[in-house]
Simulated scan of single mutants.
Amino acid sequence: MLTQHIIRTAVEVALAEDAPYGDVTCETTIPADETGSASLTAREDGVMSGIDVFAAAFRAQNPAIEITPSIADGEPFHAGQALAAVSGPVRDLLTAERVALNFTQRMSGIATMTAAFVARVDAIYADGFRAANGPVVRPRRYERTRIVDTRKTTPGLRPFEKYAVRCGGGHNHRYGLSDAVMMKDNHLAALAARGIDLTGAIRHVRQQVGHTTHIEVEVDRLDQIPAVIAGGADTIMLDNFTLDDTRRGVELIDGRAIVEASGNMSLERVADVAATGVDVISVGALTHSVRSIDLGLDWLD
């Protein structure tokens, strides 16, 4: 998904956006032949994502810049830790600095938030955990409930943000509208206006798509579930359900479809939702409400 071509194209666009006619500050203050080195340093704890993108931003500015990472994507880091060293022409280092940091800080922020959600879910399977509304139920399809992202990504940066979710231990939902069928309330309302009921709507779609196409259906009430099961949906999304209704929904579906919980997921709530036995919890906040991790480029003597 996050290919070298995608990385190279994105960083070149970002560099052109930031310095369309050159870096006037560097060109008027730094001699063209001056060289130097700097360290990418963490200002706070986090999980790394985007170290290759960081390097690509400098290399796109000048292929002669040398980058030596000391951490890999998916690894945790601590405040004060040196994460990479860069060296080369000072003008080019300073011109590419902000673009390199912008990518890495945001991607690491996403990985860090994802890791926090995954840790909350993993904790429910340890001895002694008490769920808010009943015993911990294992999901039917996976060993543990999965944390997944959504399509609520920054336009143009989806490959980077979805990759960062995986660095944090999460999983990806569909990449885009072309990847799977997801029938939400407005789709169902449009079909109902043509006289097609819920079960019939799902069967209508199934007849039109290939046998490998996954079909997901969103429900917002328990009484919709039997019709969705009868239609043969592959995944049933329980949207904004209470904990009690989520648990009842899992029991109703009884392994006949993947169960996804969605809607206003928070770190405070996610463990109790996972304890109901859902297979997947989708969290839009991983990409639409994330805070970038504070990383800096410290100049070395």
Rank of each mutant, 00 (worst) to 15 (best):
M1D: 12
T3M: 06
Q4L: 14
H5N: 14
T9L: 14
V11N: 01
E12H: 14
Y21A: 14
T28D: 11
T29L: 09
T29Y: 11
I30N: 08
A32N: 08
A38V: 14
L40G: 07
T41N: 10
A42P: 05
E44S: 01
E44D: 06
D45M: 03
G46T: 13
S49L: 06
A55I: 04
R59W: 05
Q61W: 10
N62L: 09
P63I: 09
P69N: 03
P69K: 06
E75L: 03
F77D: 07
G80M: 09
Q81V: 13
A82L: 14
L83S: 05
A85D: 15
V86W: 09
G88W: 08
V90C: 06
D92S: 10
L93N: 04
A96I: 07
A100C: 12
L101H: 07
L101C: 00
N102P: 05
Q105R: 15
R106H: 04
T112F: 00
T112Q: 03
M113R: 14
T114L: 02
I124E: 01
Y125G: 07
R130I: 15
R130P: 15
A131N: 04
A132D: 01
V136K: 09
P139K: 00
P139N: 00
P139Y: 00
R141P: 10
Y142F: 05
I147V: 04
T150N: 11
T150L: 11
R151K: 03
K152M: 07
P155C: 06
P155H: 08
E161N: 02
E161W: 00
A164T: 08
R166F: 03
R166V: 05
C167H: 02
G169Y: 02
H171R: 11
H173Y: 07
Y175I: 15
L177W: 01
S178E: 14
D179E: 02
V181C: 15
M183E: 08
K184A: 08
K184Y: 05
D185R: 15
A189M: 08
A192W: 01
D197K: 06
G200A: 10
H204E: 12
H204Q: 02
V205I: 03
Q207M: 15
Q207I: 13
Q207F: 15
V209R: 02
G210K: 03
H211P: 13
T213V: 13
H214A: 09
H214T: 13
H214V: 15
H214Q: 12
I215T: 04
V217K: 02
E218C: 07
V219L: 01
D220M: 01
D220I: 06
L222T: 07
D223H: 08
I225V: 10
A227S: 15
I229V: 08
G231R: 02
A233D: 01
D234E: 05
M237G: 12
M237W: 13
L238C: 13
T246E: 04
R247L: 03
R248T: 07
V250P: 09
L252W: 00
I253A: 10
D254H: 13
G255P: 11
E260I: 03
A261F: 12
A261P: 13
S262P: 06
G263Q: 08
M265R: 10
M265G: 04
M265Y: 14
E268S: 15
V270Q: 11
A271F: 09
A271V: 11
V273G: 00
V273S: 01
T276I: 15
S292F: 11
S292C: 12
S292P: 09
I293T: 11
L295S: 01
L297C: 13
W299G: 05
D301R: 14
